Simulated assay, not measured.
Amino acid sequence: MIVSLTVILLCQLIGEVVVRGFGWPVPGPVLGMLILLAVLSLRDRVKKTVPEFGRTLDSTGKGLLAHLSLLFIPASVGVVQRLDVLETQGVGLVVALVVSTFVTLVVTVVAFVVVSRLSGSAMENAHDGRPGETP
């Protein structure tokens, strides 16, 4: 577990160092996740040399996900500490949240419809949609 937790935190650290070093406008942990994705894609090769690496990395990741809600406590405390900002900018924040949620839903629906039309055309030719019949 220590090795896999070290790998996860090392990927985040590398991402943070690269982002700050190059001045990229991307959060360091996001680049760290991409690096971790690369590590995980190469995991099968590493499993041959360190057999327990894959198993412990999976269990450590599941353990972190099980307690993910604890990571929202600092953010909640930060919001409570800055209630003055929430009071002055609250309406703008609510409008931004509602509009961005709506735009996200619309874009998701449009993407789903486009993908379903592109992939569903072959399915529609095979099955005309009457219940009880198989193609």
Rank of each mutant, 00 (worst) to 15 (best):
G23E: 00
M33R: 08
K47H: 08
L9R: 03
L37N: 09
C11S: 11
L10I: 12
K62W: 14
L37S: 15
K62Y: 13
L36H: 02
V17G: 06
V46S: 02
L34K: 08
L37R: 14
L10V: 12
L57K: 04
K48R: 12
R43V: 02
L65N: 06
V19F: 05
S41V: 13
K48S: 13
V46R: 06
G54R: 05
S41E: 14
G32H: 07
V18F: 08
T56G: 07
R55A: 09
M33F: 15
R45A: 14
T49C: 08
L13G: 02
V30F: 15
V46A: 08
L36W: 00
I8V: 09
G21I: 05
R43G: 03
V50W: 06
V19P: 00
I14M: 10
M33W: 14
K62I: 12
G63M: 12
S59I: 10
L57H: 01
E16P: 00
W24R: 07
G21W: 02
E52R: 14
L42R: 07
P25M: 10
D58A: 13
K48L: 12
I14S: 07
V30D: 00
G28R: 08
V50A: 06
V30A: 15
E52L: 13
F53G: 05
G61T: 02
V39D: 04
P51T: 01
R43F: 11
G54K: 04
K62D: 06
T60N: 08
V19G: 01
I35C: 12
L13Q: 01
P29Q: 08
V46C: 02
D44G: 10
A38I: 12
V17A: 13
R43K: 14
D58T: 06
W24G: 01
G54N: 05
I35G: 01
E16A: 10
P29Y: 11
L57I: 00
E16I: 09
G54C: 03
T60M: 11
P51E: 05
I35K: 01
L37E: 06
T56Y: 03
P27N: 04
L34M: 15
C11F: 05
G21C: 08
T49M: 08
V17T: 09
V39L: 09
L65R: 07
L10P: 07
A38G: 15
L9P: 08
G15I: 04
L40R: 12
L64F: 12
L57A: 07
F53Q: 03
S59Q: 12
C11V: 10
P51I: 02
G54Y: 04
S59H: 07
